[in-house]
Amino acid sequence: MEDYLAIANEWGLWIAGGLMVAVALIQVLLYYRQLFVAAKTVDVTNEQLKQAFRTGAVTAIGPVLAIFVIMVGLMSVIGGPMAWMRLSVIGAAPTELTAAHVGADAAGVPFGGEGYDVQAMAVSWWTMAINGVGWLVLVGLFGHTLEKGREKLGGGDTAWLGVLSTAAMIGVFGYLNTTNILRLGGPLIAAITGGIAMVLLLQLAKKFPPIKEYTLGIAMIIGMVFAVLLG
């Protein structure tokens, strides 16, 4: 057990993982630059772009703290470099852990248990990689064809496109909440109080616009506090 984790934390793997993190960073920088070029064609000002960036960044802080906590747990089972690399790209922690387990199953040993050696770890890593590649390759090759689907769904009616976007968003989050509704207890309390807090905060933000950027972050903390107290 100690053995494979020692190898999993070798410095050479930080480099191998770092290359992947670098691609994610390069992609985001290229889009950042392109956004300033494109914004001019649709009458979005640089100030609005900066406001959008700031809002995205501020809203991300809460969820990223959660990823931070989860990643530290993941580091103890798959090593630092792999946890860093895998959580920088598609596939959240549960997905990666599932893949690591499935790899161990394919190698015929229990994940992290008796007989889980470097050989078995390699199968776990292979499974995590090939799973992520499913999304990367399909979106990479066919992502642009989805635009035609949206155009067809929208039919050139901008008013309907607005309604469609709202409906799609409510639909996705209806599904995401369902799992927590069915789990009852803490997650359900977090969802309900987080939802109510958000509605109230957005009303409040109409009177005090400066707080608008922080509404989702504050709502998240309120939901978490209630879940801890009542869950």
Binding site: M169, A191, G194, A227
Partner: peptide
């Protein structure tokens, strides 16, 4: 609780 709270908030 991060994910449940966020999902509830965005739904709201």
């Amino acid at each position: 609780y991060t994910a449940p709270a966020i999902f509830g908030a965005v739904f709201g």
